[in-house]
Design a protein around this nucleic acid. Structure first.
Lengths: 110, 110
DNA sequence: TATTTATATTGCAATATTACGATATAAAAT
DNA sequence: ATTTTATATCGTAATATTGCAATATAAATA
């Protein structure tokens, strides 16, 4: 085996998993943090920020983009990346939902 | 290659990535949702909720536990699982942090 | 004590991810 | 037109993940 049984889960569960998975690598967390740190969209120089080769960074950027967490537009010579809010809000919503429910019921047993 | 270059990133980045990665599978999203849906900790019957074999579910539970997203305590014959709030709050905080920063700067360029 | 019930571990095959060198592409600068 | 600069894609090796059958463990029950 080895392939995830995507068919057996709801669309929402698969979507959330894709978003979470995209952030399941420190390089991709670092990219998100960097996009946020710099007070603008980043046109270039993401590669220099990370301890990884250019092709590897490019691949990580692609995964974040596919998951809908960042977006990139061609800006002359380079590419301008920034965070894609809708994707981010979707996964943020999942954690808020859990957090709210937990607050309501105050689990006792564990 | 194939191994993540954990050393090159900060502890915080690695921690967040571990938490996100643990949720990067629809079965594990489903487990979290189920733990929340039932108004208590689950002692047993998680296996019957998922379209996966018992060993596979056990493995997914282990991963969520290792990441610090759930906790389980032995309850006689079965094991009682529930959500581990600190782990959840940590990753929730990351998304809130991003969301707040985004609201502040209202990206213009992309 | 033997059996049932609930969960974990082991072992392994199929597939996915990570990383990077080499190479491609395409706009900018010379 | 050629070279430089920025990024993407291809190919591939190393490693990790997914899933399950078989088996182990350990408490509950008969």
């Amino acid at each position: 085996m080895g392939a995830t049984k995507t068919d057996h889960f709801t669309e929402s569960q698969n979507e959330l998993a894709i978003l979470a998975k995209a952030l399941g690598h420190p390089a991709r967390i670092a990219i998100m943090e960097y996009l946020l740190k710099v007070d603008a969209c980043i046109c270039g120089d993401i590669v220099n920020e990370l301890p990884l080769s250019q092709p590897t960074v490019s691949q990580h950027l692609k995964e974040l983009k596919n998951a809908g967490l960042i977006k990139g537009s061609i800006e002359g010579n380079s590419i301008c990346y920034c965070i894609n809010e809708p994707g981010l809000e979707k996964i943020k919503g999942f954690f808020e939902y859990i957090s709210e429910h937990l607050a309501k019921k105050k689990n006792e047993c564990c």
